[in-house]
C-alpha cells in the first residue's frame, strides 16, 4: 500500500507537491494582472496553479500574458525571498497564451511595488553600434531560437538577441549555406487536466519564419528549411532550464 502511495506521489506534477527552489512548476490557469506601479512595464502578472491553489508571480516571462486568455505557465521556483508582486516568484518562467477565454481580473497594487523595469540581459544594440567581429576559427555551428507554445512569432528581447548574435557570427564565418529546422512539441501532454500538444504545422511555420528573417538579415546566403515534430527537450542554456521551452524551437545550422 505504501509503495502504491509513493508511486502515486511520483506521478503527481511537481506543482502538486511542496515546491522547493529550482522545482519545475507547470500548469494552465487564467492570469491576473496586479496594477503595481513602479513606472514603465512594472505591473505584475500572477497565476494560480489549480492543482495546489498556490498563486505564483510569473511576471518575469519574456512573453507575458493577455488577461483575456488562459496561459500555460512553465517555471522554476526562485530562490528570491522578496515578493514584490505579492506571490512567490517563478524565475525563469514562461507564460504562453492559449486560446481558452478568461475573465479579466485586475488587482490593485495593495502595497506591492512590482519591479522597476530594467532591460533584460538579452537585448540588442541599435544598428548604430558596431558589432564586434567574433573570432575564428569558424566551423559548423548551431544557433537556437525559441517560441511561445504553438506560435511561430519571433520573441522580442529574446529571439532577436539570439538571431542578431547569430547573424554577426555568420557574417564573419561566411558559411556556404544555412539550414533552419523548425521543431514542434506535438506529443500530447496533460497539464492541469487538459491535453496540450502543438500543431504539427507549427514546426514548418517556425522554420519559415526564421528563414525569412535570416534572408533579410543575410541577403544572398542560401537558406534551406526543414521541420520535425515530436520535439524532445534539450539542455541548451538559452532555454533557461525550461524543458518545454527547449522543445519549442528552431535551429539555425551554419554549414560550410
Amino acid at each position: 500500500m505504501r509503495s502504491l502511495i509513493t508511486l502515486a506521489a511520483l506521478a503527481l506534477p511537481l506543482s502538486a507537491q511542496a515546491a522547493e527552489t529550482g522545482d519545475l512548476v507547470r500548469f494552465v490557469s487564467c492570469p491576473v494582472y496586479r496594477d503595481a506601479d513602479s513606472g514603465k512595464k512594472s505591473g505584475c502578472w500572477l497565476a494560480t496553479d489549480p492543482a495546489t491553489g498556490r498563486r505564483w508571480d510569473v511576471s518575469q516571462s519574456p512573453y507575458k500574458p493577455n488577461w483575456d486568455f488562459a496561459v500555460l505557465v512553465e517555471g522554476r521556483v526562485s530562490a528570491a525571498s522578496a515578493d514584490p508582486c505579492g506571490a512567490p516568484v517563478l524565475d525563469p518562467v514562461r507564460t504562453s497564451i492559449l486560446p481558452d477565454p478568461c475573465t479579466r481580473h485586475m488587482l490593485p497594487a495593495e502595497g506591492y511595488k512590482g519591479r522597476k523595469f530594467v532591460l533584460p540581459p538579452r537585448n540588442i544594440q541599435p544598428l548604430s553600434v558596431a558589432r564586434p567581429v567574433p573570432p575564428g576559427p569558424y566551423a559548423e555551428r548551431v544557433f537556437t531560437t525559441y517560441f511561445e507554445f504553438d506560435r511561430d512569432f519571433l520573441v522580442y528581447q529574446y529571439d532577436d538577441f539570439i538571431i542578431d548574435n547569430a547573424a554577426t557570427w555568420i557574417r564573419a564565418a561566411k558559411p556556404k549555406k544555412l539550414v533552419v529546422t523548425g521543431f514542434a512539441a506535438t506529443e500530447p501532454e496533460t497539464v492541469s487536466g487538459r491535453t496540450l500538444a502543438e500543431r504539427p504545422e507549427i514546426a514548418r511555420d517556425r522554420a519559415e519564419a526564421i528563414a525569412e528573417t535570416l534572408r533579410r538579415l543575410l541577403p544572398g546566403l542560401p537558406v534551406e528549411t526543414k521541420w520535425e515534430v515530436g520535439a524532445k527537450p534539450t539542455g541548451d542554456p538559452d532555454a533557461d532550464t525550461i524543458p518545454g521551452q527547449s522543445q519549442r524551437r528552431a535551429e539555425i545550422r551554419a554549414v560550410f
Binding site: D35, K40, K41, G43, P65, N66, M106, E148, F153, Q157
Partner: peptide, 29 residues
C-alpha cells in the same frame, strides 16, 4: 514621457509582442 497608464487591447503594443495585455507605460512607449 513619465505619466504612465495602462495600455490595453492595442495590437502592435499588447499583441503580438510579449509586452502583455495590459501593459503600463506612457506616450513615449
Amino acid at each position: 514621457r513619465d505619466r504612465t497608464f495602462l495600455i490595453t487591447d492595442s495590437a502592435g503594443i499588447n499583441s503580438r509582442m510579449g509586452f502583455g495585455n495590459p501593459v503600463r507605460n506612457s506616450c513615449v512607449f
